[in-house]
Design a protein around this nucleic acid. Structure first.
Lengths: 212, 212
DNA sequence: TAGATTGTTAATCGATTAACAATC
DNA sequence: TAGATTGTTAATCGATTAACAATC
């Protein structure tokens, strides 16, 4: 997807979802075209950076005109892999697992939650928005019978790596991890670690800093 | 807190919570001392970077010995502002708001949730782990009577900026925002934007990339 | 003391910014 | 055409890495 097979830096990748958000907003408010300068002012980036970022993937603009909002949005959608659907399971039906299962927003972007798994007998058998909570023991069986693209890990910290191992052994290629540990995965598997507490501690760092 | 009043880069700040996590693990498993080299192998960073990072804040190590795990952990705790407590409110008692309220882990680090706020009459008046859900109309009144340090925004996207404005007008200095929008705050107020969907889209980006 | 490992300076690398020719 | 704005190259800046003297 990168312009030639050339390397795209982490920093650029992390900015793509942000572009997507702003372009969606622009499209929703009926804006047809946007220049890198206008976008830079809205987003708090430099126009130069924006043009460089887009040109990692291709020339989406037009000299003298700028970028067509909905075309550019579609391109970024493709870049982010949002032009297809993903089947998702959630391992750990606690607070975060349930919250994610209840949230309907990800479906709009093609992420469909197919099952939850837990070890708690009180949870096994009930369902959230028609998504069944299964016994974790049946994980391997389920994965053998259903094509799943992404697994969310929302277990306690000390179970996360073990779960990740079971997932990758059974063919899962993408892990979205909410446990407070960096899960190790074999080559070819992608793990995105969320680390909510890291985010909170960055906030407390800045609050302390601002009080100095 | 930085070594002299000198600037500490975003990249360094974002790594501090990660150090904190690894040091906590080391301490828990009874490890007394660690060298930058050992830590680098565990964490997947270079030893050089680790030493540079720590030296942004002070000389915590000892030549020929390394770092004392629990001393270093305590120093990073201070750096992150975790040597005090924070009173927290959550605005938006939906999926994420409730999940955060139910989660007890943040209390161990000194973050105490004092109240939730919502506009849904079905939620107002009930409580989660003894934390009451109040009518959003009473937000200003509550803030006038209670010293609150941090507000979580877990409202729908289109209400987030308005809520942020109300919060900052009433003295809130730290905002932990889960809505899919970058909230704008006045100078002197810290906003940490979580953007879960950005994280998910980064994952789908990498999955697509790995399939090429 | 000898060995180990930090703290820190210098070198390198990569990302960001600036500039401008190309072109719509 | 003239004006605007991209795509892209070159310059700058900052972060990372390497190296090593200081020192426990």
């Amino acid at each position: 997807m990168a312009r030639n097979g050339s390397y795209v830096s982490e920093a650029v990748i992390r900015r793509m979802p942000k572009y997507y958000r702003y372009l969606e907003d622009l499209e929703k408010t009926g804006v047809e075209r946007v220049s890198s300068k206008e976008l830079s002012q809205r987003m708090g980036l430099t126009a130069s950076k924006i043009r460089q970022d887009f040109n990692c993937f291709g020339g989406f603009g037009q000299q003298g005109y700028g970028y067509n909002v909905s075309d550019l949005k579609k391109e970024i959608m493709k870049i982010l892999g949002l032009d297809r659907t993903y089947n998702v399971i959630i391992v750990g039906a606690g607070n975060i697992g349930q919250a994610l299962a209840n949230y309907t927003g990800f479906e709009k972007e093609g992420f469909f939650i197919k099952a939850l798994f837990d070890i708690n007998p009180k949870l096994i058998g009930i369902s959230i928005r028609d998504i069944m909570i299964y016994d974790l023991d049946s994980l391997e069986d389920f994965l053998a019978k259903n094509p799943i693209d992404i697994a969310v890990i929302s277990t306690p910290k000390d179970k996360a790596q073990e779960v990740a191992d079971r997932l990758t052994r059974n063919g899962i290629k993408g892990i979205w991890n909410f446990a407070a540990i960096d899960v190790a995965v074999p080559r070819g598997v992608i793990a995105e670690n969320v680390h909510l507490s890291d985010s909170l501690y960055t906030l407390s760092y800045r609050i302390r800093e601002s009080l100095e």
